[in-house]
């Protein structure tokens, strides 16, 4: 089976500072990869390099495109990469304000990717927006409200709807549950798990919350100081951590 995303030897330095170094992994269709680590361990740098927001110093990110098969995303031309970014890929930001247009109604936010890919029928766009608001458990009657009037959890769900409306195959998530209270987190995770399974999405989820990866991720990478120190099946890594840092991480989780 061809991996959907194949990363090899990816490195990014900020001057003398290491962002991430020599990261390699394969992500297969329908698989969810979790990346955990402490603050400053290079998780977000890695994610930005994968999603094409940052240019890595070396390495390759091979994506299995629908039309042309495996292509290196880094050497791909910018229009092609941006096209991927708004059709086949989705990026969920930690802060929904980064991913939403706050001055545009919820319906407009969801419809933007449709319009960007050529949808020109208002009724269809609106119907799709209503459908997606329902799927992320936002009352469709709020379709004309601005995201600024939504709660944090609703904004995050709106951001997810906006990203998934074009039926992407690969979703990048940067701390999707960060900054939400635990009950809202639980609902969001439940929703995400449902959507990922239902749509057969592949995802790369960056988080420092081990509960999130336990629930969502099939496989796990643990990063420290820019390097991947441990990788494997989620349950295996969390239940039987081998590396000292992973052991520390797992034992640091507070029990209620």
């Amino acid at each position: 089976m061809t991996p959907l995303l194949s990363v090899s030897g990816l490195s990014k330095h900020y001057g003398a500072q290491i962002g991430c170094a020599d990261v390699s992994f394969d992500l297969f269709p329908g698989e969810v990869m979790g990346i955990v680590g402490e603050s400053g361990s290079g998780k977000s740098t890695l994610l930005s390099c994968l999603a094409g927001h940052l240019v890595p110093d070396s390495g390759a990110v091979i994506y299995d495109t629908r039309a042309e098969g495996p292509r290196d995303v880094i050497t791909m031309s910018e229009p092609e990469r941006r096209m991927l970014g708004r059709t086949d890929w989705a990026f969920v930001h930690q802060n929904p304000r980064d991913g939403l247009r706050m001055a545009v109604s919820a319906g407009g936010n969801v419809g933007e990717r449709l319009m960007a890919t050529g949808a020109r029928h208002y009724g269809d766009i609106r119907a799709a927006a209503e459908d997606w608001l329902g799927r992320v458990e936002i009352d469709p009657r709020r379709i004309d409200d601005r995201p600024a009037t939504f709660s944090g959890g609703m904004q995050q769900r709106l951001q997810i709807a906006r990203n998934l409306v074009t039926g992407p195959r690969l979703v990048f998530m940067d701390e999707p549950t960060g900054g939400l209270d635990v009950s809202v987190q639980a609902r969001l995770l439940d929703l995400l798990r449902g959507l990922v399974r239902q749509m057969g999405l592949s995802a790369v989820i960056v988080t420092h919350d081990l509960a999130v990866v336990r629930l969502l991720a099939d496989r796990l990478m643990v990063m420290k100081g820019g390097f991947v120190v441990e990788a494997g099946l989620t349950d295996q890594v969390l239940d039987d951590p081998q590396h000292g840092y992973t052991q520390l991480l797992v034992s640091s989780v507070l029990q209620v």
Partner: peptide, 13 residues
């Protein structure tokens, strides 16, 4: 696509 978002907002409102 953004230009149409503006027109969409017009119709929605």
């Amino acid at each position: 696509g953004l230009m149409h978002v503006r027109l969409y907002e017009d119709i929605a409102r």
